[in-house]
Amino acid sequence: MNLLQTERPLLLKLQAGLLAVLVLSATALVLKPLEENSSRALQAGQVELRMDALDQSVGQGVVLGVMGGLRSLVADFAWLELNRKWEARDRAGLGAMIQLVTSIDPRPEFFWINSARMVGYDVPHWRIAAAGGYQQLSTAEQENIIAEQAEQALVLLERALRVHPQSPRLKLEVGQIYLNRLQDFESAAPWFLAASKEKNAPYFVARIYADLLLRLNRPAEAYAFLKTLYLELPDDPMAQATIVLERIRELEAELRIEGAAAFSPNP
């Protein structure tokens, strides 16, 4: 054995190499179920990385960082860079960075919502200013720009909803764009309704939905909705049950519902 070890270095190296291959392969095979289970569980909480979005525009450091396990961190830094583009009113740069950030890490809703706000609310101002300002552009031209940007923001949020189909914040954001940018109450209402049905939706979303129904001249529908809502509200001061009840009473007056037909808060 000693002779073998000391006088046949090549044999010794082969022996060591072969043992390493055997032990490591056996370890990998034995641990395969553990590894697969863990990987599956980790992937379940993650969205698949779109490598094609990374290939061109970014440096190798970013690609390596993302693939090496620093995905969130790289996305965070890309987000800071996105903010720099936003401050500089660099429209092309902003678009590219939104694409990059949401490709690296589509998980934070924060990225989607704030990107959509930049595209839908801020970029129209930049475009109008670049075209000569509010004084120079006609209302129709301004509305055109606003509609175009709102459309882009909606496309972005549509992508976001594919990643987070149950997000009340994203649905609310879609509704807000229809409401605030396009003044399209008809389209906004279903999104507020959908948002209000999701878990952890803010209480005010449902109240806005009822308001929208009123603006759409559907008071009976609003009344029915608020009655159901009131009964479902939890015992939480934040739920503002008294405001909902006030609104119900106002609608009863408007719809002339009186006496026994009126809503009873304690059935």
Binding site: L24, L42, G69
Partner: peptide, 13 residues
């Protein structure tokens, strides 16, 4: 098979 999959430790997300 010769290398561990160190991605399983990327639990930060």
């Amino acid at each position: 098979l010769l290398f561990p999959n160190l991605q399983v430790f990327n639990v930060g997300d």
